[in-house]
Design a binder for these strands. Structure first.
Lengths: 252, 252
DNA sequence: CTCATGAATGACTCCAAGTCACGGAAGCAT
DNA sequence: ATGCTTCCGTGACTTGGAGTCATTCATGAG
């Protein structure tokens, strides 16, 4: 599926399909839905375009008509999955009012529950991040930086305005650190495949997880938090009642 | 290539080949070498097992005899590539003596040069991290945590013993943070595909890169550094003369 | 009703991973 | 050397999925 260093030509197939006609939008959407399930359940390679078409009762050719290639289809699936996630600032107003790190805590504590409700998009984002192809990965990276689907930039600005984040560093750097560590931390939290031993060594105790989350946030706070705040050793992040964890919004 | 969530059976092919006979070791090694070049140059998917065999003048079947599958072959390639990298503590004695963060600086400043000399293993590790398959990724993750090829654990212990790292957090957490951020930072530094805009926005000025590296280390120091040190705002990390950058050791 | 254009089809091609029955080589005992 | 066995290499073969395309079908405009 196209090389990386070598063969300089071969225009990526994601751009091949012509501008979508109005009517076909609905069908496109159905295909993406079905494909999302297939990819999530089987992984990128094991998902078969033919199967996806079959579950929709349409011809395989149609799928290619719409998306040009399996990669192209997956890319659309990926975008939809990632766009379905909540942005940081979608946290409830009272949590936002409590502060930057409370918002992070809010989402981290909840991810697991949110995931259980709706694991498919999460699986897709995992595939996009680790399980497809470097060529596609470049496209995905471009998408993530231009679209900022988690609203990290706005969120960091929010933290800066509140004086909770250090101002002696440009926004991009803080955004990157946040994205990198949050992503990996959540991956470790959620999937055995990617845990370097933070969660899966001892026996899955939920309070242990909670402690890890606090530990992680303490680290983050010292790293990107404003000096005044972190010097004061950071006031405690509000605890969240267990009953409160039966989520309502989407996912982070 | 086996599913993820579903089909519970199907033993992974990486373990199928019988215990290696002494004589065949040499051939295995040759195959791995050739495969490494092919994978690095073409990416995982575009690399053809047939081509690899052809460049060696052997039959495709032999490759499968030795490695069971393309995945299995790649896994061996990956392990060799990653093992060829330097460990953190392979930095020269005087750099080590200067301290934990000086060691990090030493490697970061040098990676680009080291890469230019020997880009193939780096490309392989990139493929392993982002461009294959989640199933393989699990295997890779297991390998990374059991083998610790960069010697991160020993390095963190080193930093702890010198009192440069905070002691109020367990080693695993610090190791994870270090691994995660260093990996992503280096990826951004080295490959356009994975840069979220830290390096490739303005025009590639090398002193800008150096500033980024210092910025990144400052962040890291506040995050995982001992309070006493980071409070004192961290003494300056020794600069390294430009002439000194024409590397001699392997890679990070 | 007719024509034009876009959408759907499925049989078909292409191609790469993976298999296997065979033949030859290398060890080993007698 | 001779036979026996075990391992190794081989390449023609099978399998199966991605992607193509000539054709048919649907739709809507005039």
């Amino acid at each position: 599926m196209s090389g990386i260093a070598s063969n300089p030509v071969a225009p990526p197939r994601y751009m091949r399909h012509n501008a979508p006609r109005p009517r076909s939008e609905a069908k496109r959407s159905h295909i993406i839905d079905a494909a999302m399930r297939h990819f999530a359940e089987n992984g990128y390679h094991a998902a078969r375009v033919g199967d996806i078409a079959a579950t929709l009762g349409i011809a395989k050719g149609s799928v290619f008509q719409h998306f040009g290639s399996k990669d192209g289809l997956f890319f659309e699936v990926y975008k939809r999955a990632v766009r379905s996630f909540s942005k940081y600032l979608d946290a409830p107003a009272d949590v936002r009012a409590a502060g930057f790190f409370d918002v992070l805590y809010y989402w981290l504590v909840r991810t697991e529950h949110l995931l259980r409700e709706d694991w498919i998009p999460y699986r897709i984002s995992l595939l996009g991040n680790y399980g497809t192809d470097l060529v596609l990965k470049r496209e995905i990276n471009r998408f993530l930086t231009t679209e900022d689907p988690y609203g990290t930039v706005a969120f960091v600005r929010f933290g800066l305005e509140r004086g909770e984040l250090r101002k002696d560093m440009d926004v991009e750097m803080i955004v990157s650190i946040l994205d990198w560590t949050m992503e990996r931390f959540q991956d470790a939290l959620l999937t055995a495949e990617l845990d370097p031993g933070l969660f899966r060594k001892q026996g899955e105790m939920p309070e242990k997880k909670e402690a890890r989350i606090r530990q992680f946030l303490a680290l983050l706070q010292r790293a990107v938090g404003a000096a005044s705040v972190s010097q004061v050793r950071g006031r405690e992040i509000r605890k969240i009642a267990a009953a409160d964890l039966i989520a309502k919004p989407k996912t982070v």
